[in-house]
């Protein structure tokens, strides 16, 4: 898989670079500027025949900068190939264009990333929370969000003292 030619032509898209992070599954991984993501994904879908968007998710590299990475996993059934596209986004107001007009199935994935990471998808038809209640505060999959939840985390350290129970203040 490593010796094959690049799936994204570097002359046509000069600002795309290959990822230097170890891909343990051998998937060719590219880092794409946020402004070009729709153009490149459309090229991959129509020219390179990556017809299926398998997955959209994100990684939070807190406290590093650029903080967020949106990850697209594409599959070509006819070519039996896979590719991964990653987009770096800053910590302040992370925003990226939606790909729902390329794959309608991106809708729920992008809603999930919005819900759990707080990344905005511009042009998304229905950007609401999907897993959590509408009035939830914060975005749980961010690394600085406490695992115990915001309410438990903000309580005084010694608040649980029930008779006969060993409270474990978090």
């Amino acid at each position: 898989m490593e010796t094959e030619p690049a799936l994204i032509d570097p002359q046509r898209f000069p600002d795309v670079r290959t990822s230097d992070f170890r891909a343990a599954d051998g998937t060719p991984t590219y880092i794409v500027p946020a402004a070009k993501v729709v153009e490149i994904l459309r090229y991959l879908r129509d020219v390179e025949r990556f017809t299926m968007l398998e997955d959209v998710t994100a990684i939070d590299w807190y406290p590093k900068e650029p903080r967020f990475q949106v990850v697209y996993n594409l599959l070509s059934i006819e070519r039996q190939k896979v590719i991964r596209i990653k987009v770096d986004l800053p910590a302040q107001n992370p925003t990226i264009a939606t790909v729902t007009n390329l794959w309608p199935g991106a809708n729920w994935y992008e809603r999930e990333v919005f819900d759990l990471f707080g990344i905005n998808f511009e042009g998304h038809p229905d950007l609401r929370r999907i897993e959590l209640p509408e009035d939830w505060d914060g975005h749980p999959l961010r690394r600085d969000y406490p695992v115990t939840g915001p309410r438990r985390a903000n309580l005084p350290a010694n608040w649980i003292r029930v008779e006969g129970r060993s409270g474990s203040p978090q």
Binding site: F21, R22, D25
Partner: peptide, 17 residues
């Protein structure tokens, strides 16, 4: 490193990223 690993579950492609 990172990995995207697929298996065929009873319902379809299950993958762990």
């Amino acid at each position: 490193g990172e990995v995207y690993s697929r298996v065929e579950s009873a319902r379809g492609e299950l993958a762990y990223f």
